[in-house]
Design a protein around this nucleic acid. Structure first.
Lengths: 194, 194
DNA sequence: GACAGCCTACCTATCAGAAGGTAGGCATAT
DNA sequence: ATATGCCTACCTTCTGATAGGTAGGCTGTC
């Protein structure tokens, strides 16, 4: 509880749930005020401008993502298991509508109209995620569990892009199961059969 | 020239170029009016509501996509060549910023806040594109040029998702070449080497 | 050929509501 | 007594949308 009050947390949580629905321009301070139960002006007290709110929101999202990756790293040592834990996490989120899509994937599509500060956070998330995936894939290859046809970083970019695209498909078809379905043939190729 | 005046065409073209920048809520009638050189009210004369404009815009986009697929089908008979023509098309569009992202991929991310009529068009595009990709992949497999590990339709969903995700990555990194780079390892796996 | 009737395309003017944001007041807690 | 958290009350600008009007072009009828 180092720098965040309860209300500020509520505002961020609410903004996140609204932003995954319709993006940066898809929600307003009034929407948040209605849900959290305070006035518009009070949100400005915590986050002077919308850009501050969203930058903080994405920064916190990234922190949680880091924690998630660390948790996977510490709970499972098997690279294939780690990959499955990652995709399984999203499969669950999308299925139960906890988080129907990755905040940064959605914001990436709107980058040209996003405040610079937010763009930097989104870009940093892409870099961090693909970097982690690259280490997992590389270790899997070294252990003979994963079959790569390109350098780990390139394979990681493919993997991340597929995950993001699968999120779009699940949304477009309005079929949560489409996420796992679109991903399956890639996992089938990556994972060495025995 | 069956049902569209010059001005109406201009409005649609302008709206499309604006929508790929920032999505449904990322542009306004005022923006279009400024570019096309008419008044806001005149746009309402052609398209009573914003939903009408965007539905028409996406419908036309889909028609062009159909023509594009037909053109690829008629100019090249080789499935691998057809796949490369498709990805190459987007590679060019993204590189020269003609169309930095697929209209429907972008709109898919905002589906929960889109008018129903628009959602139906976007969904139809996803279905049509994946269906076409499935036929290409299937024929490639039959000819021994493409290596599938799942049914053609499932592989098509993977391929489409990867293309869309790669568009997001190109945008997030602000590196057009990331589109082709993210796609390469998948093409490497799909295309049978000899 | 002239008139009426109707259509298309655009205009000005205006609207109500929502947007993000500001100024200043009043409690409570430290 | 100073800072925090939230409030009321505004403001400005933008949003999609409407009303009502004008100019010009067809078409049919007398």
């Amino acid at each position: 509880m180092r720098n965040a009050s309860k209300t500020s947390d509520d505002i961020l949580a609410c903004a996140r749930s609204l932003i995954v629905i319709g993006g940066y321009n898809g929600f307003s301070y009034a929407d948040i005020a209605g849900v959290v139960g305070i006035r518009k002006a009070s949100i400005h007290h915590h986050f002077p401008a919308k850009a501050d709110l969203v930058r903080t929101l994405v920064a916190r999202y990234r922190e949680e993502a880091r924690e998630g990756m660390a948790a996977i790293e510490s709970h499972r040592s098997d690279p294939v298991e780690q990959l499955r834990a990652y995709t399984g996490y999203w499969e669950t989120c999308i299925a139960d509508a906890t988080a129907p899509i990755c905040v940064c994937a959605l914001l990436a599509s709107e980058i040209p109209i996003l405040p610079d500060e937010v763009v930097l956070e989104v870009r940093a998330h892409f870099r961090a995620l693909s970097a982690w995936l690259a280490t997992v894939l590389e270790r899997g290859e070294q252990m003979g569990q994963i079959d790569l046809v390109a350098p780990p970083q390139a394979e990681a970019e493919l993997f991340m892009a597929t995950v993001h695209g699968a999120m779009l498909s699940a949304r477009a078809y309005d079929k949560p199961e489409m996420f796992g379905a679109a991903l399956a043939p890639l996992l089938g190729r990556l994972i060495v059969q025995n």
